[in-house]
Design a protein around this nucleic acid. Structure first.
Lengths: 151, 151
DNA sequence: CAGCATCCCCGCAGATACTG
DNA sequence: CAGTATCTGCGGGGATGCTG
């Protein structure tokens, strides 16, 4: 099997591949920007962008960094997929050095940095407002708690 | 239905409120704010928040509004699920009027408005930068598939 | 009309094995 | 070390039907 990423498998799979990892594998019939938004807000996309905002990372290094915040880390496959999607969208720059052992550095492009900053802002807002959220949750849960109440 | 963050897809809005008595508390091992972030950045969460930023909506009305931007609309189930999650997180206010036929209005809370504004900013950034993204995509595609069959 | 319950299927995502 | 191809599962999420 050739090295071509999209060579193997069916034609349908080739199309799927590009969107995968970013959580947007459906119809392209929707507004195109929605797709990019899904890539950026995708599960691992968010974390990758935030991490890369600090500095550039190598593959395994990035994987560890993401795993640190997310408890159950990201698989190599999903990380690769996510990075490819973001790279294709022009948000992430991939610098593969032709050495042995291989060394690849990932960093943000100018475009990616803009996106990442938006994402980070959102993430930080969430962190700051966690107290309010948890309070709201308790109120919600208690309001509809079935048990706990003497019948 | 345990709150499985791990296997979950892009949206972590699953889980909802059934964890009250369940013994699934492992998700708490990761930074809790990550969960809220997933709710907010979830597929339909994003769209719902943005729509509600304009004005309050009724259920079916909101469903139509979301379907307008997303081409392939959201099912009632997913919309209800999303709204419940956001309501539990204290981002959305649900106003159920005890009339017949039932009328329920959804609107943003103060907290929700803050989140929604962040999300909208991100969405609008995406819209504005679409040209750059599409350009990057073409470059990426052409670089990796110059002519698969030319051998 | 709002929205929960049930069934079921597709596709995302994880694990594994292999390559350069 | 940095990926890639493949198999499989399992859960997200759509469709349908029922209730208040």
């Amino acid at each position: 099997m050739a090295v071509s990423v999209r060579g193997g498998g069916t034609a349908a799979e080739a199309g799927t591949r590009a969107e995968a990892g970013a959580g947007a594998g459906q119809d392209a019939a929707m507004c195109p920007y929605r797709l990019v938004l899904e890539h950026v807000t995708s599960r691992w996309g968010v974390l990758v962008l935030i991490e890369l905002l600090e500095r550039s990372y190598r593959f395994a290094e990035l994987r560890r960094a993401v795993g640190r915040v997310s408890e159950k880390g990201v698989s190599e496959k999903m990380l690769a997929q996510t990075l490819q999607t973001l790279e294709r969208d022009g948000l992430v720059h991939r610098d593969a050095k032709p050495v042995i052992p291989p060394r690849v550095d990932y960093s943000l492009t100018g475009l990616g940095r803009e996106a990442a900053e938006q994402v980070r802002a959102l993430a930080e807002w969430t962190r700051q407002r966690m107290a309010d959220v948890e309070q709201a949750r308790q109120a919600y849960d208690e309001a509809r708690a079935p048990g706990a109440r003497a019948s």
